[in-house]
Structures are given as C-alpha cells and as structure tokens.
Design a protein around this nucleic acid. Structure first.
Lengths: 233, 233
DNA sequence: CGATAGTTGATCGTATACGATTTCGTACAT
DNA sequence: ATGTACGAAATCGTATACGATCAACTATCG
C-alpha cells in the first residue's frame, strides 16, 4: 500500500484544511496561525502551508503581517458591517440573475428549508437557524450563471462564517421577520417578477438583518474589551 | 552599509512585479508564467514567486494548473462578459455609495477628464480613451466608504486591463455615447439624486458598453444571453 | 521603584536540493 | 505514412537548512 495517486497537492490540502477549520469555527477570529505548527499537524512542510495562507489572505479570511505571521481575520465589528453590506449587493444581484433559472423543484426545496426554519423558531437555536438560512439562500443564488458573482457570494458567506456571530443570536427578533421575507421572496420568484424587483427584495432582506444587528449593538451598555471606536451612523 | 532595510519582502516584490506586467500588458493573456524564469529575472528564488502567484491566482489574474503551471488568465471572451457584468453591479454600488461624499472639486476634476475624453473623440485613440475612462470613474467611486466594495471594483478593473481589449477599439461608436452619459451621471451626483438612481445610472452605463460590445462581436442579431433587459417591474 | 539596554527564544523569509510529473520529440513497428 | 512506445528535457512540488526579524524577558542603572 504505497503511492496512492493523490489527486490534490499538499498545498491544496493545507488550503482546504485551514479554510475548513476557520469556517467551522475551530479557528476563531484572532487565532494565531503558526506555520510550523500547522505544517506539523498536517504532516507536511511549511512551504505548502505558506502558499495556502497566501491564498486565504487574498480571499480575506486571514490577515498577514510581515515577519509576524497570520491570524484569522474578522475580529473587527466594522468588518462585519462591510461584509454584510457587500454581500447584500452581491447576493441580491446573484439571486436576481439566478431567479429565471430556478425550477419548481428548487422552489419546493427552498420552501421546505424555510419550513424547518419556522419550526426552529419555537425552541430557538441560533446556530441551526443560521445554517438553515445559508441553505435557503444557497438554493436561490446557486443557479447564478455568472461564476464571478457566484464566487463573490461564496466568499462573502465564508467571511460571515468566520465572524461566527450567528447573527441571529444577537437579534432573535429578526429571525421571525426573516422567515416571512423568505416566503415573500419565493413568491416573487415564482411569479417571475422582474429581475429588478427580486434584486431589490433580496438586497433589502439582508440589509434589514444588518440594520437590526446595528440597532442592537448600539443600544446595550456592555462595551467590548477590544477596540470599540469608529462607525457613527 | 548593507542593503537599505527593505520594507517589503521579496514575495511582495514578486507579487507587484508580476501584477504590474500583467496589467500593463507586457504579460498578455495566455502568457506562460514559468517559476524559475520569473525568479531569475527578479533575482530571487522560486519560493517567493510561488507565493506571489498563489495570491494572483486567488485574485483571478492568473490561472493555475497542478504540475503544469500558471498562465495569465483572460483569454476567454466569456470571461470578459462575466467581468463586465460583475463590474457593472459592483461599480454601480460603489459609485452610489461614494456619491454623497464627492465634493465640487472632485466633480470639476471629473468634468475636466471627461472634457479630455471628448477631445479625444476627434483623432480617436482607443487606448488613451480607455485610460481616461478609468480616471473618470476612479474619481467617482474612489470615495466609497466600504473598503471591500472598493477592493472588488479595483479587482474588476484589473481584470479588464488584462484583457487589454481597450473595448472602445471594438465599439468606437459607443465612445461618443459614453461621454454623454458621463455628463448625465455627473449631473445626477451634483443634484444629490437618490442613491438608487445613481446606482442604476452607473450600472446601466457600463452594461450599455457591454451590450454594444456583444452586439458587435455577434453579427447575427440574436437575443443576447446576459444583457441588461431587466427594466420591468 | 521605574525605565532602558541587552539577551534569548520563537517564528518568519528565502535559498537550495532533489524527487515527481508532465510534455514533447524520436524511433520503431505496423 | 501513421500510430504507439519509449526516453529526455523542462518544469513543478516539497523538504530541509539557515539567516533574519520580532517579542518577551531579565538585568542593570538612575
């Protein structure tokens, strides 16, 4: 048992391994990515790991500083804001472009997922709800014919995943509205509403979640021990 | 005595060097990026070059294939289409977000640039016109407060630069319309039109260039797959 | 007691070396 | 003449080695 043809390079494996741990949350924001450590864990040398980290850097999942090292990015609360805003635009467009290509089967699946979300509202589990939320939206934008846009949407979701906020943990009230808006969105798509209408609705849907979050964090008295300056609006 | 403290790593230098040559066009699409060659030219080893290429790969400027190598991407004409469509969305949003922050000085500068473009129409030089076009739009979106979006706009422009088509070489007729639309866009911004209006105008402006290009390259007047007919609602 | 210079350890940056894979040309057989 | 098999050259992938840099700690001086 030797020489199994490995279809993916070690660099690739390092990339997916690190990315997975970041997205799944075992590498939390701020986590220090030490090259030798990771290389050791994966049983490879540092060179492939370096390449992997360069890619992750270009994607914005990790922050890199010369002669210091890489850390999982996403601590900054303004980062969340920027990411959500960007995603509202990109995902809105992706959903609109995708809409004409969504068949009734996909609609039914989306509706089923949204049903689960509705059930989930009872004994509320923010993490599960967020996961379902991603499933739901994936169904809607995954048919987007423009691969660039689709890629940007995925990157946006990954970024959000690193922030691990589960958003809805902070604004549980928003969850209920969210489910309703999902239904409305599905109806729009089903009725072949104009791309413009769908785009606006999808963007608005996400923007509303962001607004709810912002309203929430600006009210409570407990300031975060890190940096809490900036962003007045 | 020893070399001046170099604030940037060789990896960094390799990155900017390669990127510059791609954007400036001395590395044309399809160009084969041989690691050892580049390393030799830059007087470094292959390791930093590999890292640089990984980053460029993640940005989409180069395409990478395992055990084969990297090539400057952008040969595919559909790539142009996808990039333009994506950019129309991103740049539209960036311009709209930027608009409220554009002061009269910037407006004046933009108007001056557009004046040069108008002059340029006489003895038409597509390359110069395209460069001015970038200057013009840069003034409009550069104030965008969301760094992610701004970054995406830059990446989009870079991608376009690699395709080096100068677009207007293919559709010179579009140049004249373009200048007029620029004026209209400036008027909208000056009059504090709604973000929505500005976004729509900016997006439409770029989409129209894309449509003109598509109409040009496909002689048979087929309904174009990804054009911008989405004004119904 | 506080501040600053020196020292040590951890970690990064890059070069070099060598095995692995692909590509392409050439010779041979049909 | 065409197709296949073999082999050599080019290029990539990864490991290892070592110098460079940064951060933390300690010791010494005021």
């Amino acid at each position: 048992m030797h020489g199994e043809v490995s279809p993916e390079s070690k660099s690739e494996r390092a990339y997916t391994a690190i990315k997975t741990r970041i997205v799944e949350g075992s590498f939390t924001p701020g986590y220090r990515l030490v090259l030798a450590k990771i290389a050791g864990d994966l049983g490879v040398s540092v060179v492939p790991v370096r390449e992997a980290i360069r890619r992750l850097e270009a994607e914005g999942l990790v922050t890199f500083e010369r002669n210091v090292g890489a850390t999982v990015s996403g601590i900054d609360p303004t980062e969340y804001l920027y990411t959500m805003q960007t995603l509202s635009i990109i995902e809105g467009a992706a959903t609109a472009l995708s809409a004409p290509l969504i068949d009734s089967v996909a609609i039914a699946r989306a509706r089923a997922v949204n049903g689960e979300m509705r059930e989930c509202l009872e004994h509320f589990d923010p993490v599960r709800f967020t996961a379902l939320n991603q499933d739901f939206h994936s169904i809607l934008f995954e048919h987007c014919p423009n691969p660039h846009i689709l890629d940007l949407v995925h990157r946006g979701w990954n970024r959000l995943a690193t922030l691990r906020s589960s958003t809805f943990r902070f604004v549980p009230a928003r969850a209920r509205e969210s489910v309703q808006e999902h239904d409305a969105l599905l109806r729009l798509i089903e009725s072949d509403a104009g791309a413009d209408t769908i785009e606006r609705a999808a963007r608005q849907h996400r923007a509303a979640t962001l607004d709810a979050y912002l309203a929430q964090v600006s009210a409570p008295p407990e300031p975060v021990p890190y940096s809490t300056q900036e962003e007045n609006q």
